[in-house]
Design a protein around this nucleic acid. Structure first.
Length: 581
RNA sequence: CGGGACGUAGCGCAGCUUGGUAGCGCGCAUCGUUCGGGACGAUGAGGUCGCCGGUUCAAAUCCGGCCGUCCCGACCA
């Protein structure tokens, strides 16, 4: 491509509304433009990167036996009603109506539709099957942000596996795990495999691939000693047990004027340290008011509450609901003697004695509470948020917590979708059994952004060769110098002939502008052709990542650059991803 | 959804407090000089001041409503 004819609208200034590095650089570099909140146009450079990312994903999926198909983006409402996800995913579904007044939805994911297609499978002899597509998804995210990192319309590679039993599923899951690791390695990002919550997908097991980055939105608990890694939505930890002093035979109510918070009660004369308090929260789970109990110094993780109860709609109780349920306002709540609503307690409260909690009478608390004796706990659940420094659940070493981008997610779904949608096959005994499904997703544009988040410097993007829009840029320093243009054009032709993606900067611009643009858009190799070098029969090769410059003899340049590029197309990563357990 | 901010030329911004027919930098076009790390001079093109309504002789500016965008939080396969 000749830069003089290319549409590469680079900007001199940073866009003010871009915070994340990838957002800022992709806009400035002329890769993307926003059309509306969470919806982006990919300009020629962006589209080239996307194409390369997709090619890598496709190769690795094909390598594990995937068959590519393309299902519709628009779905009938009825299928989503059958599986109940019309409610479970209601808050992100784009819906629309057709001329007959029928309802359709724009697919946020395709388990339902793939399972519907899979009803045509009839025999275990046809299994296993691995189907995938690369297609547009629509999710009406409440808060799109950070450029391509969190959008409402995006491309996803989603694959679905169909097996006759769970051992078959396990195999396909492991194959995807390996394929995903190869994909991230080739994209030039570190992705850490972590245990994750399955959320609205349901199913037994899921693993997320997290690219560590401050621009991410997931918090990961990680053990540097043994490699344990889990999303805090799901992570557990070891913490020291508390030695309770013996309490009285009966809980005792006492006045606590103006005490509203855990900290108030810590500071109150006759109060208690936070780890000796019971925090009582009121949540409404699918319309049902529910008490949620945690140790005073622990924080609830709502995803754990959702996963632990299976509730779809979950929200904190309103002040009036709380008052009606317990007869007191937040700040004086407790579960002692409460019998109506469900009472969910965090595991760390088990066997605790001599605790302090609210009395369900404003400005009063109760001390001497024995959890087993005094509170009618309905369910014991792991509800608290793991914090850095707590002990690894596997080996006890201190956990670290880091932030990252969810670049991929793989799920063992089981038979949830196949049962509801009637996707069964006959097994070897002639008995109909539901297909055992897995589903596996990787977001294309989000991964483009993740690559940038991990590969940039003060001058711009530093693409890995594997996904760079162009592998080489030839910078012609002086376009009205005949010798310069002859050499530059010949090099351009030779590299094109060698199958290299090459951009020649033949614009009538000053060299500084050309160098800066080349660095901003992040082309891995730059060959500078100009009178100064030609006087010595050389051109100059610059490595974007290292900044290193080497001189090449004119006659060898094309061959050397082509060899260099070919050798760096498949980066061998030295990065290690912790093995999932 | 709660909180905060913003919306004026392709991009980045000023002007608004105190109403009087819109300005700066970059970019763009033409010419000249220059040109191996974001050149200089001259000339020029380009704007429904987010939208609707109100106040006023007069609204980018004051008032009301709406729309849009970003940030924090909530939420999120």
């Amino acid at each position: 491509m000749r830069w003089s004819q290319a549409f590469i609208p680079t900007l001199r200034d940073d866009p003010t509304d871009a915070e994340a590095a990838s957002h800022r650089l992709l806009v400035r570099g002329g890769y993307i433009r926003q059309l509306m909140s969470g919806v982006y146009s990919l300009l020629p450079l962006g589209y080239r990167v996307r194409t390369k990312v997709i090619a890598i994903i496709r190769e690795e999926l094909d390598a594990i036996g995937g068959q590519e198909l393309l299902l519709p983006a628009m779905h009938p409402r009825e299928i989503w009603e059958k599986t109940g996800r019309i409610e479970a995913m209601a808050d992100i579904l784009f819906t629309l109506s057709d001329l007959r007044g029928g309802d359709a939805i724009l697919g946020p994911t395709h388990e339902e539709i793939f399972a519907t297609v899979a009803t045509e499978l009839t025999s275990y002899k046809q299994l296993p099957q691995l189907w995938y597509q690369i297609q547009t998804k629509f999710r009406d995210e409440a808060r799109p942000k950070s450029g391509l990192l969190r959008v409402r319309e995006f491309t996803m590679k989603d694959s679905y596996s169909f097996d006759v039993d769970t051992s078959g599923l396990d195999e396909q899951f492991d194959r995807h795990f390996a394929a995903y690791n190869r994909i991230f390695e080739r994209l030039g990002v570190t992705a850490v495999a972590v245990e994750a919550s399955s959320g609205a997908m349901g199913g037994s097991d899921s693993i997320e691939f997290i690219v560590p980055s401050p621009a991410g939105e997931d918090d990961i608990a990680h053990c540097p000693a043994c490699g344990y890694a889990a999303n805090v939505e799901r992570a557990s930890s070891r913490i020291p047990a508390i030695d309770d002093e013996p309490g009285p035979d009966q809980p005792q109510r006492f006045p606590t004027p103006d005490v509203r918070t855990i900290v108030d009660l810590v500071e109150f004369e006759g109060g208690a340290s936070a780890d000796r308090q019971i925090k009582t929260l009121v949540y409404v789970l699918d319309g049902e008011p529910t008490l949620v109990l945690l140790r005073g110094d622990h924080e609830l993780h709502e995803q754990k509450l959702q996963d632990g109860t299976g509730a779809i709609d979950i929200r904190p109780g309103q002040p009036d609901e709380i008052l009606e349920l317990l007869g007191a306002d937040a700040g004086s709540l407790g579960a002692v003697g409460v019998s109506g609503p469900r009472i969910l307690a965090d595991l760390q409260l088990a066997d605790r004695t001599n605790m302090v909690t609210g009395a369900n009478l404003n400005d009063h608390h109760i001390r001497g509470v024995d959890v087993d004796r005094d509170i009618a706990v309905t369910d014991w659940l792991d509800l608290r948020t793991v914090v850095a420094g707590e002990g690894c659940p596997e080996c006890g070493e201190a956990l670290e917590v880091f932030r990252g981008i969810e670049a991929g997610h793989i799920f063992k779904l089981g038979t949830k979708f196949s049962e509801t949608l009637g996707a069964t096959v006959l097994n070897a005994d002639g008995v109909p059994v539901p297909l055992v499904m897995g589903s596996y997703g990787i977001g294309v544009e989000r991964n483009m952004a993740a690559v940038v988040e991990m590969n940039y410097d003060d001058d711009g993007i530093v693409w890995p060769v594997s996904v760079a829009p162009y592998e080489v840029v030839i910078t012609a320093v002086k376009i009205d110098d005949e010798a310069t243009m002859t050499v530059a054009n010949r090099l351009y032709d030779d590299l094109n002939d060698a199958g290299i993606d090459v951009l020649i900067d033949d614009r009538d611009e000053r060299p500084g502008v050309k160098f800066n643009d080349a660095e901003l858009i992040g082309i891995p190799y730059r060959v500078t052709v100009g009178p100064r070098g030609l006087a010595n029969d050389i051109v100059e090769l610059a490595d974007r990542r290292s900044g290193e410059k080497t001189e090449l003899q004119i006659e060898d340049a094309a061959e050397e650059v082509a060899a260099l590029v070919a050798g760096s197309r498949f980066p061998v990563s030295s990065l290690q991803s912790p093995v999932p357990r």
